[in-house]
């Protein structure tokens, strides 16, 4: 299924000028647990989706209180760099919306 069918919130934002962080909050506890257990959201799959090196995926955290999976990556450029296209990093979530998860 596509991630946007399983989640209420899919968002991206800077975490300081050198990191981008993505939050995926699932609709129910059951969906959250299934996706978390499936391992579909991994450093390898995230790196492939964004075409980045796997070592640039800094953390993948399962945050139970919010039924959320959080992924933080090295920002491709620092916020406001000459090559910037999204200063706040708030629109980098789009590829995640149609990401296919097997649950």
């Amino acid at each position: 299924m596509k991630l946007r069918e399983l989640a209420d919130v899919i968002r991206s934002k800077n975490a300081g000028p050198y990191e981008l962080t993505f939050d995926i909050m699932f609709k129910t506890q059951e969906i959250y647990e299934k996706v978390a257990a499936s391992g579909s959201i991994s450093a390898a799959s995230f790196a492939a989706l964004y075409n980045i090196h796997e070592e640039d995926v800094m953390e993948i955290i399962h945050f139970h209180p919010a039924k959320a999976i959080k992924v933080t990556i090295v920002r491709p450029v620092s916020s406001g760099d000459l090559r910037e296209t999204d200063v706040y990093g708030a629109q980098q979530h789009a590829p995640l919306m149609d990401f296919e998860v097997n649950i």
């Binding site: 934002k13 945050f63 959080k70």
Partner: peptide
């Protein structure tokens, strides 16, 4: 608690 943070814990 997740918002704009690297690690919420």
């Amino acid at each position: 608690t997740l918002y704009e943070k690297t690690n919420p814990y």
